[in-house]
């Protein structure tokens, strides 16, 4: 089974880099031959192009939520597909997946999306805020444990 771990974010926008870092650490933590790591700052259709050809995709991204910094949630990709929310200059991942299915692009059987709550995603800087930085090891362990569930 070919698995893609896809970290999304901007590496120079403080906590926005958390998805990239978590993806890298997760990749180092879990064993497996057929696992690829991609770090990218893309949205919508381009994300879907990256997913194409894998059996399973693990996407890690960040949401701004100062009250719950360090928490991580798994989102239901199917649920995203039914929403209409989109982003500028492109389309949301959910909409892109609907479109991909519509035109018959091969998408992974299983798409798991993890969202990490972050404090500051609007200040240029190469480090995470201390609170999120401290929580990172535990975030990565939690994602790994979730992935290991039968």
């Amino acid at each position: 089974m070919r698995t893609l771990i896809l970290g999304l974010g901007n590496p120079i926008l403080s906590d926005d880099a958390a998805g990239l870092q978590a993806a890298r650490q997760l990749y180092e933590l879990i064993d497996g031959e057929d696992i690829d790591l991609v770090e990218a700052a893309v949205a919508g259709m381009q994300t879907v192009q990256l997913l194409s050809g894998y059996d399973r995709a693990v996407i890690i991204d960040v949401v701004q939520d100062e009250a719950r910094v360090g928490e991580v949630w798994r989102l239901d990709a199917r649920e995203l597909e039914s929403g209409s929310a989109t982003s500028s200059h492109g389309i949301g991942v959910g909409q892109a997946m609907r479109l991909a299915r519509l035109v018959g692009l091969p998408l992974p059987e299983e798409i798991l999306i993890y969202a990490i709550a972050a404090a500051d995603t609007s200040t240029f800087g190469e480090s995470l805020t201390p609170q999120l930085g401290q929580a990172m090891p535990s975030i990565v362990r939690r994602i790994a444990a979730d992935l290991a569930r039968p």
Partner: peptide
């Protein structure tokens, strides 16, 4: 105008109703 707010490089879908 297709305004670009030079901000988020990405956004999680579903977060922007």
């Amino acid at each position: 105008y297709d305004p670009c707010l030079a901000c988020a490089t990405h956004s999680l879908p579903g977060q922007m109703p």
